[in-house]
């Protein structure tokens, strides 16, 4: 896998408190990283599909699974269908779910590269950076 550079992370979680906390952790890890918080998968899809307006696009998405309305799986589905973007961020499942079914499903889907359990920590970010980015 060609490693890319990480300069922007998108957080998709219906809980804004989690998003804010995770932003803090990310910035503690690397203050130069940009963080985009999205409270819903619909908003996130919208953002990703409007690259001309939103010039800053994420290299990495931390995606929650259990969300009201469009959930994490729906997001992955719809995101895959509209892959005309130039930008194809890596997706990591970040959730409280330790449901073995969810984890198995994530492993099988080629869209999710990793599954992690909340909360995000600096150690987790370090290992992601080392594993997937330069």
């Amino acid at each position: 896998m060609i490693k890319r550079s990480l300069s922007c992370i998108m957080l998709i979680d219906n809980n804004p408190d989690d998003n804010y906390y995770h932003r803090r952790v990310i910035q503690k890890h690397d203050p130069s990283l940009k963080v985009i918080e999205m409270d819903s998968a619909t908003d996130a899809l919208h953002y990703l599909q409007s690259a001309e307006i939103n010039s800053i696009q994420p290299d990495l998405i931390f995606l929650d699974i259990n969300m009201p309305g469009v959930n994490g799986w729906d997001f992955i589905e719809q995101h895959r269908e509209k892959k005309q973007r130039l930008h194809d961020p890596l997706i990591i499942m970040l959730t409280t779910s330790e449901n073995p079914d969810d984890i198995r499903r994530a492993r099988l889907s080629g869209d999710v590269i990793d599954c992690m359990t909340k909360p995000l920590t600096i150690e987790m970010l370090k290992s992601v950076n080392k594993k997937y980015f330069e």
Partner: peptide, 16 residues
Amino acid sequence: HDLQEPLRTVSNYMQL
């Protein structure tokens, strides 16, 4: 699972 969530928020924000 659902109990764990708000609990985590409490501890996260205590840290902040």
